[in-house]
Design a protein around this nucleic acid. Structure first.
Lengths: 176, 176
DNA sequence: AAGTCACTGCGGCAAAATGCCGCAGTGGAT
DNA sequence: ATCCACTGCGGCATTTTGCCGCAGTGACTT
């Protein structure tokens, strides 16, 4: 039974993911922040995997990577982020992360990453080239989640009218 | 004088970049493909940096990474790609790349990457969160370039009407 | 308890964008 | 010369968007 640490401040998302991982046979220890996680699990405890959110309340997430790495040198360290970027992904890898996923990834993908099979996310995807509609939809979902579901704020950030956002959300997502 | 290898099949882009790097004091050896590059530069030659395009005509680019790594173990290996993704970036890093940049990056950024200062690309970028219009514009530019400027094909790939694409292109880009 | 404030969901309507024709021109290949 | 793919552009019906406004809700204050 693989024992993993789930560090994520969004409570709803955390418990959902924790449940999904547990039902897949993992022992999950939850924590809303990294410092708490370090205290929560004694150093001797055999943590095999860590899921770390990049945007914890005040902490930068990246700062936590090194500390977590030192604490559990042999654990798989998977970064989870709502709105990610390539430079940030590379940066975390250099800091010692083993993988870097978006929150839009499903529990299965996270599980694979924890087990070290990054192929699931890395596999032969030569050039999907998302359609414009697809790209737009994904971006909206990302920002929406990042704004905690606040439609007004999301619309403002995206630079579109609130009404328009609502209408877009009412429609079903583009299949691809 | 740093000697670098530029492997890129888009001739216009390659010569432009080569010129930009040369004027910055680098010795640039150009090649349209990886196998040619291996032949072009004798194994003894002290190559210090490699810039590798991910989408060479037939080759996958990723396949070339290992060969290039073996040939010049100590060279900085920087991946350049038109349309990149986070999983692909991580994959190339695991294969032995040192950095991964989009073609939209400027010569200065590429230079920094070759020198090992990935901070330039990785620096404090907390969350730009592009507007919808901005995101759309960038994606269009990327795909357009990838289609070699073919408007009809680009429109098809993006899933929009050709006329609409033309109209979008006629407008000036969103400032932010 | 009444009041304030930020959000949401929705209707309406003019303005703008889009899809979907078609047509002329151009440059390359046969 | 002929075919073919692409481009630029006009027109037009349809859809989408921006920009109001209004009512309802829940949290928080006075």
């Amino acid at each position: 039974m693989m024992k993993v640490l789930l560090i994520e401040d969004d409570e709803a998302f955390r418990s959902t993911l924790a449940f999904a991982l547990k039902r897949r046979g993992l022992a999950v220890i939850e924590s809303p922040d990294a410092v708490g996680a370090l205290a929560l699990a004694p150093a001797g405890e055999a943590i095999e995997g860590i899921v770390l959110d990049m945007r914890l309340g005040g902490e930068s997430g990246a700062d936590s990577i090194k500390a977590l790495r030192e604490h559990w040198p042999s654990a798989r360290l998977v970064i989870l982020t709502g709105y990610g970027s390539i430079p940030e992904a590379l940066h975390t890898m250099r800091l010692g992360a083993d993988d870097y996923l978006l929150k839009s990834a499903g529990a299965d993908q996270i599980l694979e990453a924890l087990r070290g099979n990054s192929q699931g996310t890395t596999r032969s995807a030569p050039a999907p080239v998302p359609s414009l509609a697809r790209l737009e939809w994904e971006h909206i979902q990302r920002v929406l989640h990042e704004c905690g579901g606040n439609v007004s704020r999301t619309a403002e950030v995206l630079g579109i009218d609130r009404r328009t956002l609502q209408r877009k959300l009412a429609k079903l997502p583009p299949e691809s």
